[in-house]
């Protein structure tokens, strides 16, 4: 299982890009951290989600 924003999901084995494609996140408005480290945007297609990973997807909305 992979913990994404606090929720346990059965997505181990998918890449971050593959996971994001199943969600409503806009890739241009997010930052992704994996076990406390930033995932480089250029690495979304290559980074595999693994059992026990803790993922935080920060999504930005407009206003400031």
């Amino acid at each position: 299982m992979v913990k994404i924003n606090g929720e346990e999901l059965n997505v181990a084995g998918k890449t971050i890009a593959e996971y994001l494609a199943t969600t409503n996140y806009d890739p241009k408005r997010i930052a992704v951290e994996r076990n406390g480290d930033i995932v480089f945007k250029s690495q979304y297609g290559e980074t595999l989600l693994q059992d026990g990973d803790s993922i935080e997807i920060v999504s930005f909305v407009g206003g400031g």
Binding site: D26, K28, R29, I30, A31, V58, F60
Partner: peptide, 10 residues
Amino acid sequence: DAECKAMLVN
């Protein structure tokens, strides 16, 4: 702007 926010944070 949301995209500018994400750009800078990344």
